[in-house]
Design a protein around this nucleic acid. Structure first.
Length: 821
RNA sequence: GCCCCCGUAGUCCAACGGGCAGAGACACUUCGUCGAGAACGAAGAGGCUGCAGGUUCGAAUCCUGCCGGGGGCACCA
C-alpha cells in the first residue's frame, strides 16, 4: 500500500483550504469584551518578488508554530500578513516591460497570496495590508510630518553614499563593506542635499533599552546593534591652532594620554584641512586631497595599506603643557566622526603609531604598562598602567587619570566629558519612483512647507515605462503636472519634493497598522495597539539585524515620545531562522543551484515540506536541503493517518480505563513536547510526537489493540500536537477520529502528573566512575536505603574486591557512585 | 587582527543545574508479514563526544590552551 493510496496530499489540501476559508479559524477578535489572553505572532512581511520560495517556506513554517500553539492554548491570537510592496525591483521590471510598477507588484502579491493559502500559515487574512496602497502610505506620510514637526526629519547637504547601479542615495546601514546592500554595486560618494531622520538623538536609548531584550533576542543581533551604534565615552579637548582665532575641538577616549600627544591630524577631506593649510604646503595638500577623493570606499576601508598624509605647515598647541605639535592631514581620520580632527598619541594608539613611524614623528610613552617601548616594537600599548611624563597625572592608573584629566580640562574650560557614536542619522530620501512620496512642498518665498494633513496622501503620479528610467534625479521630477503645485502656506507657485522615502520607512511601522488595518483617524487605533502590542514573537531573517530592526525600535520610541504608545520596544521576542541551502551553498538562480518550492509541494505536499523544515534541526540553523528526507516525513505522516483511521475506541471513551503503559507515553510526550515548543526547539518536539506514534503503533499491533481508550487518547494527542507543524494531516486525522474541525481550537492537552511518575526507575551503580550494576527501584527511594542496596550488590562487591569503601555518593534515585579506598 | 557562537555514530541532530553517550530521522544490515513493493511491521550494527591538559567521586557538559567551521566588527580617535 503506497502512501498515496491512503493519503493524497493534494486532495487533502484542497479540501481543507476550502473548509478553512469558510470557518476562518484564525481570525483575531478585537472586541474589548473578549477576556482571553492575547498574543501577537508576527512574521517579517514579504517583498513581492515572484512566487514564494524555500526561504519563505522555512520562515513561515517556523513563525507559524508559536501562533498555532497559542491558538491551541485558547488565546486570542493576532497573526497577520501583508506585503512590503514598494521597492526597486518593481520599478526595474516596469522599465523593462514598459508598464506601471503597480502591475508587476500586485500580480506578484496575488501569486504569493495564493501560495500562502495553500501553504496555510494561520494568518488572519482580514488584516492584510500593502505598503504601496495609498490607504497605507497616507499614514507613512502622516508619520513623516510628525517627525518633521518634532525636528526629527530634516534636510541637510553633505557627503552621501550613492549607488551608481540603482541611481539613488543609500543610508549608511545599506552600505555593506563599501557595496550596495541591495545590488552589490560599489558605492560612490557624492555631495547632495537629502532628507534625514534624526536617529542619533535616540542612540543612548537604543543602546540602553537593549537591557529589556537581553535573553529574548539572539545575542548576535544585540551585539551587532551595539557595534553599529558604537557609543564611546571620553572627552572633547580644545587645541589652539597657531594663526587661527577659534580653537579646534577633538574627541578622544583617552584624555589620560594628553601629555603623549606628539602631533595632530585633520581629516584630509574636512573643510578645516583646506582652511588651515599653510601656503607653502598648499600644492602638496591639494594633490593629496585629490588622491584621497579618488579612492574608493574599499581602498579606504583596507586596514592593510600604509598610512598616508601630508604636513599642513601649521602647529597646534597642546592645552595641558603648551607644547607645539605639527598638524597633518590624513585619510585615516574621518571627517564625519567626532570633530574630524584628532590629537595623535602614537605610544598608545596603533593607528597613530603607524602614522608616526611612517613619517618619523616622535613617540612618547605616558602610560607605563610594563610592555616594551612602542617606538621600538611598532606595537602601541593600550592597556592599563601608571601614568608617567604627565605632570599632575603622574602616578595615577588609567581610569583615575581619565577622570582627573577631564576635571582639569573642565576647570580650565579647555574641554569636557563627551560621548560619541558611530551611528549616523538615517538618510531616508531616494531618487526613485516606486516609494512613498515625501509630503513636502518647496516654495520660493516660504521655503520647505509640509503638506497639510487633510491633503494626504500625496499620491504618486501615473508614470510608467521609460519615464521611470533612472537619470540620477527622481523620476518624479519628470511629472511636471504633479511637481507644480500651489504653496499650502502662501498659495503661490511651488514644487513638490520629488524624492520618495526609503522603503525601510514603510516597514518601520507596519506591525502597528495590523492592529487596526482599516483605522481612518490615524496610523493606528491607540486602543487596539494597547491591547495587542508589543509583538510577543517576531520571526524573520538575521539580515535585518541592523536595518529594519533598528529602524523599528527607533520608530517605536518616537511614537512613545509622541504619547501614542505606552511601551518603548516593539518586539518582545525575536527568532532569526536560518537559511535554506543546497549542498553547502546558497541557492542561486544564476548557478542553477535551486530547489523550487512549488515542485517540492507538488511532489510531497505542504505538510511534508513544513515538517522537513522544522524537523531538520533547531530553527536558527541553516537547512541543507540535501540532508533532509521528504520521503521520511511522508512516511511519518502516513503513519499518523493510519493510526487515526484504525483507532476503534469511540470518541469520548474514558482514557482512565485505558492501557497505562501507552497513557504514560502519551502524557510524557505531552509534557516534553510542551516544554520543547516553548523553548522553540521544534525539531525535538516533533521527535517526541514520533515517539508517541511509535508507541501507539505498538499498542495497536502488539498491545491492548485499537479499541483501547488509551489508543484514542494517544491518537487525539498526536493530532493536536501535530497541528502546530503539519496542519493538513492533523486536521484530516482529527476528522478521521470523528472530531469536528478545526483541530487548531481543540485545546492543548495537559499532562497528568500522576502519569509522569514511573513506578520503577533504573538506578546505575558505579564503582570508581564505572558502571557495575543497575537496580530497579521505586522513584521515591530514600538515599540511605539506596546506598544499602548498592553496597549489597554482588557485582559491586566483586568490583570492590578486598579494598574498603572510602566514600559513597548517592543521587537518588538515579545513581550511586562508590569510591574505593 | 579583535569579539561572539559551534565541533557528538556515515549524515541531520538529541542528551534539563556535571550523573548509564542516544530521543527522533536518513542511510546501512537482518528478520517477519502480505495483495510481493522504492509497501507495512520489527530487530541490529555503528563512538577516544575535534585535540591536549585541568577541576571533580564522576565531564559531551565547567576551566585553560590548541585545531577546525560559521558569524560579527575592523582606520570610529
Amino acid at each position: 500500500m503506497a502512501p498515496s493510496d491512503s493519503y493524497d496530499p493534494r486532495a487533502v489540501q484542497d479540501k481543507w483550504q476550502a473548509r478553512w476559508a469558510e470557518i476562518e479559524p484564525y481570525r483575531a477578535e478585537e472586541s474589548a469584551d473578549d477576556s482571553r489572553e492575547r498574543r501577537y505572532a508576527l512574521d517579517m512581511f514579504p517583498y513581492p518578488s515572484g512566487d514564494l520560495h524555500m526561504g519563505h517556506a522555512e520562515a513561515f513554517a517556523i513563525g507559524d508554530v508559536p501562533a498555532r500553539y497559542w491558538f491551541q492554548r485558547g488565546y486570542n491570537v493576532l497573526h497577520p500578513i501583508g506585503w512590503d510592496s514598494f521597492g526597486l525591483p518593481a520599478e526595474n521590471a516596469a522599465i523593462k516591460r514598459n508598464e506601471h510598477p503597480a502591475k508587476w507588484t500586485y500580480a506578484n502579491i496575488e501569486t504569493q497570496a495564493a501560495s500562502f493559502h495553500r501553504y496555510a500559515p494561520s494568518f488572519d487574512w482580514s488584516r492584510r495590508l500593502h505598503t504601496s496602497d495609498p490607504e497605507y502610505y497616507k499614514w507613512t506620510q502622516w508619520l513623516f510630518l510628525r517627525f518633521y514637526e518634532r525636528g526629527l526629519a530634516y534636510r541637510k547637504g553633505g557627503q552621501v553614499n550613492w549607488c551608481p547601479n540603482d541611481q539613488t542615495v543609500l543610508a549608511n546601514e545599506q552600505v555593506v563593506g563599501g557595496h550596495c546592500e541591495r545590488c552589490g554595486a560599489l558605492v560612490e560618494r557624492r555631495t547632495l542635499t537629502q532628507w534625514y531622520f534624526r536617529i542619533t538623538d535616540y542612540a543612548d536609548r537604543l543602546l540602553d533599552d537593549m537591557a529589556q531584550l537581553e535573553g529574548r533576542w539572539p545575542d548576535r543581533v544585540l551585539l551587532m546593534q551595539r557595534n553599529w551604534i558604537g557609543r564611546s565615552t571620553g572627552a572633547d579637548v580644545q587645541f589652539v591652532i597657531e594663526g587661527r582665532a577659534e580653537p579646534v575641538t577633538v574627541f578622544t577616549t583617552r584624555p589620560d594620554t594628553l601629555y603623549g600627544a606628539t602631533f595632530f591630524v585633520v581629516a584630509a577631506d574636512a573643510p578645516l584641512a583646506a582652511e588651515i593649510c599653510a601656503p607653502e604646503q598648499r600644492a602638496e595638500f591639494e594633490a593629496y586631497r585629490e588622491q584621497v577623493s579618488r579612492e574608493s570606499e574599499i581602498d579606504r576601508l583596507s586596514t592593510e595599506r600604509e598610512k598616508t598624509g601630508v604636513f599642513l605647515g601649521r602647529y597646534a598647541i597642546n592645552p595641558v603643557n603648551g607644547e607645539r605639535i605639527p598638524v597633518w592631514a590624513s585619510d585615516y581620520v574621518l571627517a564625519e566622526y567626532g570633530h574630524g580632527a584628532i590629537m595623535a598619541v602614537p605610544a598608545h594608539d596603533q593607528r597613530d603609531l603607524d602614522f608616526a613611524r611612517r613619517f618619523g614623528l616622535p613617540v612618547r610613552v605616558v602610560v607605563d604598562t610594563g610592555e616594551a617601548d612602542p617606538a621600538q616594537t611598532g606595537v602601541a600599548t593600550a592597556g592599563d598602567g601608571r601614568l608617567v611624563n604627565s605632570g599632575p597625572l603622574d602616578g595615577l592608573g588609567k581610569a583615575d587619570a581619565i577622570a582627573r584629566a577631564i576635571e582639569v580640562l573642565e576647570s580650565k574650560s579647555l574641554g569636557k566629558a563627551s560621548v560619541n557614536y558611530r551611528l549616523r542619522d538615517w538618510l531616508v530620501s531616494r531618487q526613485r519612483f516606486w516609494g512613498c512620496p515625501i509630503p513636502i512642498v518647496h516654495c520660493a518665498s516660504c521655503g520647505e512647507v509640509p503638506v497639510p494633513d487633510e491633503d494626504l496622501p500625496v499620491r504618486l503620479p501615473d508614470l510608467r515605462g521609460a519615464d521611470l528610467a533612472p537619470k540620477g534625479t527622481s523620476p518624479l521630477a519628470a511629472a511636471g503636472d504633479w511637481v507644480d503645485t500651489a504653496c499650502p502656506r502662501c498659495g503661490g507657485p511651488a514644487t513638490r519634493d520629488t524624492d520618495t522615502m526609503d522603503t525601510f520607512v514603510d516597514s518601520s511601522w507596519y506591525y502597528f497598522r495590523y492592529c487596526s488595518p482599516d483605522y481612518a483617524d490615524g496610523p493606528f487605533d491607540p486602543e487596539q495597539v494597547r491591547t495587542w502590542m508589543p509583538v510577543d514573537q517576531y520571526t524573520g531573517g538575521v539580515e535585518h539585524a541592523i536595518l529594519h530592526l533598528l529602524y523599528s525600535r527607533f520608530f517605536t520610541k518616537v511614537l512613545h515620545d509622541m504619547g501614542m504608545v505606552d511601551f518603548t520596544e516593539p518586539f518582545t521576542r525575536l527568532l532569526n531562522q536560518g537559511q535554506v541551502i543546497l549542498n553547502g551553498k546558497a541557492m542561486s538562480k544564476s548557478t542553477g543551484n535551486l530547489v523550487d518550492l512549488g515542485d517540492q509541494i507538488a511532489e510531497y505536499g505542504v505538510d511534508v515540506v513544513r515538517l522537513a523544515m522544522l524537523f531538520s534541526g533547531p530553527p536558527e540553523d541553516d537547512i541543507d536541503w540535501a540532508d533532509v528526507s521528504p520521503q521520511g516525513m511522508a512516511k511519518f505522516l502516513a503513519r499518523v493517518h493510519r493510526i487515526a483511521a484504525e483507532t476503534a475506541a469511540p470518541a469520548g471513551a474514558d482514557p482512565a480505563a485505558g492501557d497505562v503503559t501507552l497513557r504514560r507515553a502519551t502524557h510524557r510526550v505531552i509534557d516534553e513536547a510542551t516544554t520543547m515548543v516553548e523553548a522553540q526547539r521544534f525539531n525535538v518536539a516533533i521527535a517526541r510526537i514520533m515517539e508517541l506514534v511509535s508507541a501507539t503503533r505498538k499498542a495497536i499491533d502488539s498491545g491492548p489493540g485499537a479499541a483501547d481508550p488509551a489508543v484514542r487518547e494517544a491518537a487525539e494527542t498526536i493530532a493536536i500536537l501535530l497541528s502546530l507543524f503539519a496542519p493538513y494531516t492533523a486536521e484530516e486525522a482529527w476528522e478521521a477520529l470523528g472530531r469536528q474541525a478545526p483541530v487548531i481550537r481543540a485545546g492543548w492537552p495537559s499532562a497528568d502528573p500522576a502519569l509522569l511518575v514511573e513506578d520503577q526507575v533504573t538506578c546505575v551503580v558505579q564503582v570508581a566512575g564505572k558502571v557495575r550494576d543497575r537496580l530497579e527501584v521505586p522513584p521515591g527511594i530514600a538515599a540511605d536505603e539506596l546506598e544499602r542496596l548498592a553496597l549489597a550488590s554482588d557485582k559491586v562487591r566483586a568490583a570492590l574486591g578486598d579494598g574498603g569503601v572510602r566514600k559513597v555518593i548517592v543521587r537518588a534515585p538515579k545513581i550511586v557512585n562508590i569510591v574505593p579506598a
